[in-house]
Amino acid sequence: MDFGLSDDQRDIQRTARDLLAERARPERVREHAEARTVDQALWRELSELGWPGIAVAEDHGGQGLGRIELSILCEELGRSLAPVPFLPSVMAATLIEHAGSPEQRDRWLPALAAGDATGALGVAVDGTAELVIGAVEAGVIVLVEDDRTARLLGADEAEVTPVASIDPTRSTARVGAIADGGEPLTGDVSAGIDRSLVAVSSELVGVCDRALEMTVAYVKERKQFGVPVGAYQAVSHRCAQMLLETEKARATAAFAAWTADAEPDRLPEASAMAKAAASDAAREVTASAIQAHGGIGFTWEADVHWLYKRAQLDAALLGGAKRHRAQLAVILAEQLQASATA
């Protein structure tokens, strides 16, 4: 058993963190959030570095690395809240890779890997998907219905209505297919969804990590009654709890990312577990971050609220914690039954 990242993976992590610390500074994120715009310059830069194609096969112009490497980038982008459509693009690419035909893959994966086109993934109910992240600027949109059937829509085959969500660091839209628009994705939709769940969970780990880091720094500095507020156990225990939640989310997301490549049979269980843990953790940790900041945490300028908002949207994305726990219970019951009959 070895939980450590390889040297190469650590390099990816360090490079990503350094780059985003420089290019996605809070002022810049806030600027784009207020204007509700994508940071196109940053997206071009990340594309040139090959980020969108990190987990896309080399045949399709990607780097052909694994889900762990992808998770590392998701986490760093979650930390920085960089206003780029990375997560929706890699989710769309994942669906196309696992559920698309060879033609569909040839058509879209190279563009997505190069960042020339961006993608989006929506969960539709009766044909319409709400709050689809990145759909406004997407060249290709995957709409999943009932967890099983999926349609692939070119931008001109989808009806995209921008809707302002509470998280303006990225675009959101209502998406429906125009009559008979798009084509079905007939392959393994679940495999694509499960891997997408891991990507979202990893982004949430980054959100938690950043919230914790900002909070610990703040409560060491902020003094009331002559001592740093971090000295009060009400505050320090809150921070400790934030760490616990963050680490739970991190461990389960890492397990799920590893499973995706190494033991795909366990992925349905691992991804449901990761998404349940990360969704709960992120909502709790970011709420705690606001609380520990006191009044300043409630202000626009303090920047903690972006994390709370990101957490709320990601927690709901592809189903909330409650749904994934229910899913998990079904999987566990099946496993028990299987081992009893074996």
């Binding site: 709400e130 709050l131 809707v163 302002a164 509470i166 709320q312 709901a316 409650k322």
Partner: peptide
């Protein structure tokens, strides 16, 4: 926060 789950997208939409 429970409303965000029960009401769904509308509860996460500005305005």
């Amino acid at each position: 926060e429970l409303a965000a789950e029960i009401i769904g997208p509308e509860a996460l939409t500005m305005g």
